[in-house]
């Protein structure tokens, strides 16, 4: 019998690969099966099911909660764009050295200290209720707008720090080479440092993106009819909480792929760095 050399090894490799998969599959089924069994067999389960997991109520609530979720998504995306730009401007302020730029630098530092130190919910309440009450001429007067502004201001503080760490991670030789070529401070940032820094910060930024998507729900306290608010309205009308579960499912459907994407990007980024370090 003629055997090609690699063949036997490959069979073993396949078995080696399958065994752990089987073990994890079986253990997952046992553990989660047990949980489902105990929950399902509990005395209270039928009541819980009708209150939280009623298919009928879910279907009934789905259209309005779905509509609210679209509102959430819109707020999320618009805020993201504003945060990405505003935080980048602040990070640039922060990165400019020399006496002329001291005021901008100090402004950026104070800004980050202030907005990172305050709970987002507090800012949302302050801006969302406070500013419209002032009736300022020429400025929008609705809670949604100002609540969104509060989110942007708050998240920009975190995003600024992320940008800053990305800028600091760029090797100092890069700045020196740019200076030696005669580039100004701004040109050095623009052409040498920032393109590398932005690549550095993608994984950390994606974490903020996921966090923001959930915090958009904070605007529901202002009466903005987002997914959470719509779900509450349904609950108030019917005394059934299944609508909140619908909202939860929608959020998970959006955030879980984002989280996987973040993992993927972070892993690729790590490999890129490892490679370039060789």
């Amino acid at each position: 019998m003629t055997r090609r050399p690699g063949k036997g090894r490959r069979t073993i490799a396949l078995k080696d690969r399958l065994t752990p998969v089987l073990i994890s599959l079986v253990s997952v089924i046992i553990v989660f099966g047990a949980i489902v069994y105990f929950v399902g067999s509990a005395e209270q389960w039928p009541r819980i099911q009708s209150q939280f997991f009623s298919i009928e109520a879910m279907l009934e609530a789905a259209p309005s909660v779905g509509r609210g979720f679209l509102v959430s998504l819109q707020i999320w995306i618009i805020s993201l764009v504003c945060i990405a730009i505003w935080a980048l401007i602040l990070a640039i302020f922060r990165a400019m050295g020399g006496p002329y730029f001291a005021p901008l630098r100090i402004f950026a530092i104070l800004y980050v200290d202030l907005f990172r130190g305050l709970p987002a919910l507090l800012l949302v309440l302050l801006f969302g209720f406070g500013i419209p009450a002032l009736n300022l001429p020429g400025l929008p007067n609705n809670g949604l707008f100002w609540g969104g502004v509060a989110l942007v201001l708050s998240y920009s503080a975190y995003a600024t720090e992320v940008y800053r760490s990305g800028i600091e991670a760029v090797h100092e030789g890069q700045g020196m080479a740019a200076k030696a070529l005669g580039l100004t401070q701004w040109q050095t940032l623009r052409y040498a440092i920032l393109p590398q820094a932005l690549r550095n910060v993608v994984p950390a930024m994606l974490n903020l993106v996921v966090a923001l998507q959930k915090d958009v729900a904070l605007l529901s306290v202002l009466g903005v009819r987002d997914a959470v608010r719509e779900a509450q309205i349904y609950t108030a009308r019917t005394f059934n909480y299944s609508s909140l579960v619908v909202a939860a499912i929608l959020f998970l459907l959006a955030t879980i792929p984002m989280a996987r994407l973040t993992d993927y990007v972070a892993r690729r980024d790590r490999q890129r760095r490892l490679q370039s370090a060789l």
Binding site: G173, Q174, A177, K179, A180, L181, G182, Y191, Q196
Partner: peptide, 29 residues
Amino acid sequence: YKRIGIVFQAYNLFPHLTVLDNITLAPVR
């Protein structure tokens, strides 16, 4: 900087730019 050029031990090329863009950055900008 135009009249004195310097080359560093660690090259310090810009990794995000092509060889051509590395070279033309200063002449252009």
